[in-house]
Measured scan of single mutants.
Amino acid sequence: KLNEKEKELCQMVRLVPGAYLEYKSALLNECNKQGGLRLAQARALIKIDVNKTRKIYDFLIREGYI
């Protein structure tokens, strides 16, 4: 299910792929509902370490998901 970049992200932030996909889905759904997504909203949405949230958020922006 994951592409190579997503696999690298999961290894870097030490997330299991299932958890990453869950977080990605939640962030994309919220982004679609709101018409955009700020980091503060992402942090409130997924209750994990803020540094991990930041890396996931930055990755999703860089890859054009949000």
Rank of each mutant, 00 (worst) to 15 (best):
G35W: 00
K5D: 05
L37R: 03
R14K: 11
E30D: 07
R14G: 15
G18I: 08
Y65Q: 12
R62C: 05
R14C: 13
D58K: 08
N32D: 13
E63Y: 05
L21E: 04
L21F: 04
C31T: 10
R38M: 13
E8V: 08
K47A: 12
K47F: 00
M12S: 14
T53P: 03
Y65N: 06
F59I: 03
M12A: 13
L2M: 08
V16M: 12
L37G: 07
E30F: 13
Y20D: 08
G35R: 07
R43V: 15
E6V: 08
A40L: 04
K5R: 12
L27S: 00
K33M: 06
R38Q: 13
G36L: 07
V13M: 15
E63A: 04
K1I: 10
Y20Q: 04
L37E: 05
A19K: 15
S25F: 09
L2Y: 01
A44P: 03
K1Q: 12
A44G: 10
R38S: 15
C10K: 02
D58R: 05
L45C: 10
A40F: 06
Y20R: 01
L60G: 04
L27Y: 00
L28S: 06
A44S: 13
S25H: 14
G18V: 08
K47M: 05
D49C: 12
K24E: 00
L2R: 01
D58N: 13
D58M: 04
L45R: 08
E8S: 09
S25N: 12
L39C: 05
V16D: 15
R14Y: 05
L60M: 13
K55D: 07
G64K: 11
L9G: 00
N3K: 07
L27C: 04
A44R: 12
K5L: 05
Y65E: 12
K33G: 07
Q34V: 07
G64L: 01
G18C: 11
E63D: 07
G36F: 10
G36E: 10
Q34L: 14
R14P: 10
L60N: 03
C31N: 09
Y65D: 13
G64I: 06
A19V: 09
L27N: 00
E4D: 12
Y20V: 00
E4W: 10
I61L: 15
Y57I: 07
V16R: 14
K33Q: 11
E4P: 12
G18W: 07
L15E: 03
N29Y: 08
A19L: 09
I56R: 03
A26G: 02
V13H: 09
I56Q: 00
S25A: 14
A40T: 13
I66Y: 03
G35L: 05
N3G: 08
C31Y: 15
K1Y: 10
L21Y: 04
K47D: 14
K47S: 10
F59W: 03
Q34S: 11
K24N: 00
Y65R: 06
K55I: 12
L27K: 01
I61D: 04
E8F: 05
E4H: 05
E30Q: 11
L45N: 05
G18S: 15
G35T: 04
E4M: 10
E6N: 01
L28H: 02
S25E: 14
L9S: 02
I56D: 01
R14N: 15
N29E: 12
A42T: 05
P17R: 03
E8N: 10
C10Y: 01
C31H: 12
Q11C: 04
L27W: 10
T53G: 05
P17D: 03
Q11W: 00
L9I: 07
L28T: 11
F59T: 00
F59Y: 07
N51G: 15
V13C: 14
K1D: 13
L27H: 01
A26Q: 12
G36A: 08
N32E: 13
Y57F: 11
L37C: 06
P17A: 03
A19H: 11
I48D: 14
R38D: 15
E30V: 07
G36W: 05
R62M: 08
V16K: 15
D58F: 03
L2Q: 06
I61W: 09
R43D: 10
P17F: 00
E8H: 11
L9M: 08
A42N: 02
D58W: 04
I46K: 09
Q41I: 03
C10Q: 00
R62I: 02
L15F: 00
I48M: 13
G18L: 10
L21W: 08
I46A: 11
L45Q: 06
A42E: 05
A42S: 04
R62P: 00
P17H: 07
L27F: 05
A42Q: 04
F59R: 02
G64T: 06
R38K: 14
R14M: 04
Q34A: 11
E63P: 04
L39T: 04
I48A: 13
L37Y: 06
R38F: 08
A40E: 15
I56V: 08
L27G: 01
K1C: 05
G64A: 04
E22C: 07
A40N: 11
Y23W: 07
I48R: 10
N29F: 06
L60C: 01
Y57W: 08
S25W: 09
D58T: 06
N32H: 12
K1R: 10
Y57Q: 04
I66P: 08
I46S: 13
L28Q: 12
A40G: 11
K33T: 09
V13L: 15
N29I: 04
L60P: 04
T53C: 11
N29V: 07
G35K: 07
L9V: 03
N3C: 10
N3S: 15
K24L: 02
E22V: 07
L60S: 02
L28N: 02
Y57E: 05
V16P: 15
I61A: 10
E30R: 04
L27I: 09
K47C: 06
K5W: 02
K24Y: 00
C10R: 01
K5Q: 10
K47R: 12
N29H: 12
N32Q: 13
Y23K: 03
M12P: 01
G64R: 11
V13P: 04
C10P: 00
V16A: 15
L37T: 04
N29K: 13
Y23G: 01
I56F: 02
M12I: 11
R62D: 14
C31S: 13
G35A: 05
K5F: 03
L9C: 00
Q11M: 08
A19C: 09
R43H: 14
N3P: 03
Y65G: 07
A42R: 03
R14S: 14
L37Q: 01
E22L: 08
R43K: 14
E6K: 03
A42I: 06
Q11N: 13
E8W: 03
N32L: 10
L2D: 02
